Simulated scan of single mutants.
Amino acid sequence: MSKPELPRGYLGPQPKFSEFKLSTLSHNDPEITADTNEIEVKFRMGQPVKVTGNLIECSSTKDYSNLLFTQNQGDVVSYIVQMPNPGYYKLQIYALPVSDESKTLPGVYNYLINCTRAPKAVQPFPKQYAQWKEGCYLYEPLTIANNNGTVNFKATVPNAKAVAVTVNDTWTQLKNSGSDVWEGPVQITKDSRVTLNVNYGGEETKYSTLLEYNL
């Protein structure tokens, strides 16, 4: 498969990248060749930033952003990328300082990934809501198989007063194991809507959705 033509200046850091105090950590070259269809791309933050991204298959221009998972741990931003087929993909990174109230995140870095093999079956990551992108980190589960069973949840959720998982209308409270880490077993049923939710204090019954899995 031939390499796609890209606009001049498209690859690598964009003007806001250094202004927002970001630096590459795992992949310094914006052209990545991968012999597997799951990779993790990491950046270091010099200040707190909100981040997002998208994943586009070059040949079909199809958006596979449901196969892209973003999370933060300390000053590191991590993008876990799954690619369904061999071929070229554009990974486009967007960011904005947390202190900026603007709703639009400018593009800060672009990668071109050449996936030469696709040995793993891909499974969509959970949908990430706005507050997830403010310092949260998911240890498990990154994906959930669509069957009945017990799944262990473990996530870092800064400043949370309570964290709960819902399976349709059934609530399970997670336990705080220290350092903003919340975890616990949750009974999953097939064909469910599963959400990870946070309460930041104030009203005990007011929870915000962080992640949503659709089985």
Results as ranks from 00 to 15, higher is better:
12 G>A: 12
12 G>H: 13
18 S>N: 14
18 S>I: 10
19 E>W: 07
20 F>C: 03
20 F>M: 15
22 L>D: 02
27 H>I: 06
27 H>S: 07
32 I>W: 13
33 T>P: 09
36 T>S: 13
40 E>W: 02
41 V>A: 04
43 F>S: 03
45 M>A: 14
46 G>Q: 11
47 Q>W: 03
48 P>R: 12
50 K>G: 03
54 N>H: 07
54 N>M: 11
58 C>A: 05
58 C>Q: 11
62 K>Q: 13
63 D>A: 01
66 N>M: 00
69 F>W: 07
69 F>L: 01
69 F>S: 02
70 T>P: 02
72 N>P: 08
81 V>Q: 07
81 V>G: 13
96 L>W: 04
97 P>C: 04
98 V>K: 03
99 S>G: 00
100 D>P: 12
100 D>W: 06
102 S>D: 15
103 K>P: 14
105 L>V: 01
105 L>W: 05
106 P>V: 05
109 Y>N: 14
109 Y>I: 09
110 N>V: 05
114 N>F: 05
114 N>Q: 15
115 C>W: 04
118 A>H: 09
121 A>H: 11
122 V>A: 13
123 Q>P: 10
126 P>E: 03
129 Y>I: 02
131 Q>P: 01
133 K>M: 12
134 E>T: 12
135 G>F: 12
138 L>Q: 01
141 P>M: 06
141 P>N: 02
141 P>L: 15
141 P>R: 09
142 L>S: 08
144 I>A: 02
147 N>R: 14
149 G>K: 11
149 G>R: 14
150 T>A: 08
155 A>R: 00
155 A>K: 03
158 P>R: 00
158 P>Y: 12
159 N>R: 12
162 A>M: 04
162 A>L: 03
167 V>E: 11
168 N>R: 12
169 D>Q: 13
171 W>R: 04
171 W>T: 01
173 Q>E: 08
173 Q>P: 02
177 S>T: 07
179 S>F: 13
180 D>M: 05
186 V>Q: 08
188 I>E: 01
189 T>I: 14
190 K>Q: 15
193 R>S: 12
196 L>Q: 01
196 L>N: 03
197 N>T: 00
200 Y>H: 00
203 E>Y: 00
204 E>M: 00
210 L>K: 04
210 L>P: 00
210 L>V: 06
211 L>Y: 02
215 L>W: 13
